[in-house]
Design a protein around this nucleic acid. Structure first.
Lengths: 112, 112
DNA sequence: TTTACATACATAGCATTCTTATGTATATAA
DNA sequence: TTATATACATAAGAATGCTATGTATGTAAA
């Protein structure tokens, strides 16, 4: 990822799975742009991180793919498999616990 | 760290610096126990992660050490240096931004 | 027209982080 | 005397992400 943000390490799979739980199907480049817009440019998801992560999730059976040609360019769409839909719930609960514990450790209150 | 929690990767330095900003001085083993108690056992900070991290922060000039013998056992106390006191503020702001962005990406509301 | 930028995929090499395993040493409880 | 707690430390390995690079098309700017 980027911008001196070492902190996001380990959260990428969860982010991908969650975006796909909201969007039915997405392709790689679309995911990078979505992450960029949601975080207002603060998190830049690099291709060198994204594509291997997508391949790994697919190999784990959590994602399914379908390739299309759009505007004469290749697009590889990813969607949650049945296992993926189950796993995203676990990952989100882990993320909630993680944020809770991190706020406890850092004495941070949510900013809203 | 531990318990299938890949998510904490990258947060260790921030956690250490913040604990030392609240406690004047702490020794390694004490930090592991503090993290364990604050998270109610959910985050187990391993020695193999902690000690190298402390050494690195010391080498970076953010921590200062003083060694004592207590109950016939060695204790190496760590405290924030002047630079460390400044850096902890940066790290905490980064952590706030990180949590904010992660909640945005995962559509999570704080649980209280 | 050619240079830069956006779209769209992919991988190899490297750096960093953390885990596991191991080692040393003392004190206490079973 | 065996296990557990206290207290430090490091080496080998796994996992993650970053940088750099490569291929290819389309469009906007100089």
């Amino acid at each position: 990822m980027a911008i001196s943000n070492e902190l996001f390490k380990g959260t990428l799979q969860t982010i991908i799975l969650h975006l796909l739980s909201e969007n039915e199907r997405m392709y790689g480049y679309e995911i990078t742009q979505k992450v960029k817009s949601v975080t207002q440019g603060e998190l830049l998801l690099k291709e060198g991180a994204l594509y291997p992560a997508l391949h790994k999730l697919e190999a784990a059976g959590l994602l399914e793919t379908s390739t299309e040609i759009v505007d004469n360019r290749l697009r590889k769409y990813y969607a949650l498999s049945k296992d993926g839909k189950a796993e995203v719930l676990n990952k989100l609960q882990e993320a909630r616990d993680f944020i809770q514990n991190l706020q406890l450790l850092l004495n941070l209150k949510p900013s809203y």
